[in-house]
Design a protein around this nucleic acid. Structure first.
Length: 428
RNA sequence: GUGGGUAUAGCGUAGCUGGUUAACGCGUCAGUUUGUGGCACUGAAGACCGUCGGUUCGAAUCCGACUAUCCACCCCA
């Protein structure tokens, strides 16, 4: 029988790393909570049209990276990102009638049919945040500061915050015209994709990494010079707020998000420690999206964080989030009667929150001791005929080798607890 | 979608100027005399050498295709 393989671009999260995920997720929840955000959970798939309208029909994500789900005559799509579905759920459940601003977060998996590489998977996990209802720059500052706080708490090093404003539809129109006017004379010198972009979305030209295009980009007009009064004020105020909050940033006129819904503020946290896909967090304001999805015109913004990228960054920086599972006490039975008692004792220990194990392999004493050592048991106790007769057993501290005698009666758990706590304290 | 690299036991590797039972380290399991782990020693299990086809008397070793994987472009988290 041939073994079936996991689909390309997906990952199995094995016990050796699942604890990192648990710690990471716990920390995300806690930090988001401290900023007043509550969790939302939405379906893994949505009507395809939601993404076409929300993310934008001309985007790469929608045009060539979506996983279609066909069931009977219905057409759905596995979510390629979290914002569209979250906004849909907010509208469908009338949540805009709740106290504004709405602050929600989610931890979910996203699906994009791209070619996998370092930091890029076909199923990846995202922590995302949406803050709905405020057009104020202070809202932008709050959201960015949440992202920054998370990175800080995780101990991620070498990340940089890049911000930009891509304006509202009004100022963007003027900017497009200016860009076209600038690039048109250079058309022949541009790379092929950029010649395309010049027609469709000139802002994308700024992103290009090909040396020829970058040389031309250098002197291209900057969006920041074309922002309308209100967008420009918004951006200035945001920068002032960030400075006030001691959040370092660099204005990077070249950030252009690839999702259509962004307006005004866009930002990303970038690292150089994980290869080419260095964006660990990306987000921005999307004042037009809710209207586009059929809701009332409402200001909003948010960000997404790639959890695999976060974990990869930490790993490459030599950081660890979690310790292995471990075991407080391993009971070594010798003989059937002892085995029964050990089974009962482990059950009793666990009720008190102690992680306990005993033999389920029928192994020899020596083999059991080796096993206890391998799983990192902090204490062991051999229980055989002698112990059963005397009604007490020697508790061995695996690190120091020290032994203590404990009675094998109802007080066992209690006594072990005391010894275990004492041991823990002596190490601090 | 486009380029380039790689593909040998669970993991990490050697072998790759073609020639009998594919090697090593780690890990796993058992044991080193009868009741105590870490070290050391002994032994065992575990690989149709990614798949298919070609060249050849003969291929892990040469060639091709496919698949997977990695890196980069693109795009994004």
């Amino acid at each position: 029988m041939e073994l079936l393989r996991r689909p390309n671009g997906t990952e199995d999260i094995l016990p050796s790393v699942s604890r990192d995920w648990q710690v990471l997720e716990g920390m995300l929840r806690e930090t988001a909570g401290s900023f007043g955000f509550s969790e939302m959970r939405i379906p893994t798939f949505e009507q395809t049209e939601l993404f076409e309208r929300g993310v934008g029909e001309t985007t790469d994500v929608v045009q060539k990276e979506m996983y279609a789900v066909v069931a009977g005559n219905d057409r759905f799509t596995l979510r390629p990102e979290g914002t569209a579905g979250t906004i849909r759920a907010i509208l469908q459940n009338g949540m805009l009638n709740e106290a504004l601003p709405l602050r929600v977060y989610y931890i979910l998996s996203c699906f994009r049919h791209e070619k996998p590489q370092a930091g890029r998977l076909r199923e990846f996990h995202q922590f995302g945040v949406e803050m709905i209802g405020s057009p104020q720059p202070s809202a932008d500052a709050e959201v960015i500061s949440l992202a920054g706080r998370i990175l800080e708490r995780l101990g991620v090093k070498n990340t940089q915050l890049h911000i930009n404003s891509i304006g509202c539809p009004t100022c963007r129109k003027a900017y497009h015209t200016a860009l076209k006017a600038y690039f048109e004379p250079h058309r022949a010198e541009l790379c092929e994709t950029c010649q395309e972009r010049l027609n469709k979305n000139p802002m994308r030209l700024l992103d290009c990494k090909s040396p020829e295009c970058q040389a031309i980009n250098k002197d291209a007009p900057m969006i920041t010079d074309y922002l309308c009064e209100s967008c420009s004020e918004h951006f200035e105020k945001l920068k002032a707020n960030l400075t006030m909050l001691n959040i370092d940033y660099t204005v990077d006129p070249k950030i252009v998000r690839g999702l259509d819904y962004y307006t005004k503020t866009v930002f990303e946290f970038v690292t150089t420690d994980i290869g080419a896909q260095g964006t660990v967090c990306g987000g921005g304001r999307y004042d037009g999206l809710i209207g586009q999805l059929g809701g009332p015109e409402t200001s909003a913004l948010g960000f997404g964080m790639g959890l695999e990228r976060l974990l990869l960054t930490l790993k490459n920086q030599g950081m660890t989030l979690s310790q292995p599972q471990g075991c407080d006490l391993y009971l070594v039975p010798m003989g059937d009667a002892a085995a029964d008692l050990c089974l009962q004792l482990t059950a009793a220990l666990r009720k008190e929150g102690i992680s306990a194990q005993t033999d389920v392999m029928g192994r020899s004493l020596r083999a059991q001791m080796k096993y206890a050592d391998k799983i990192g048991a902090r204490f062991t106790a051999v229980i055989g005929d002698n112990e059963l007769e005397q009604g007490e057993a020697a508790l061995k501290n695996m690190q120091s080798g020290e032994k203590l005698t404990v009675k094998l009666d109802d007080s066992f758990t209690e006594h072990f607890s005391a010894i275990e706590i004492a041991d823990r304290l002596s190490k601090d």
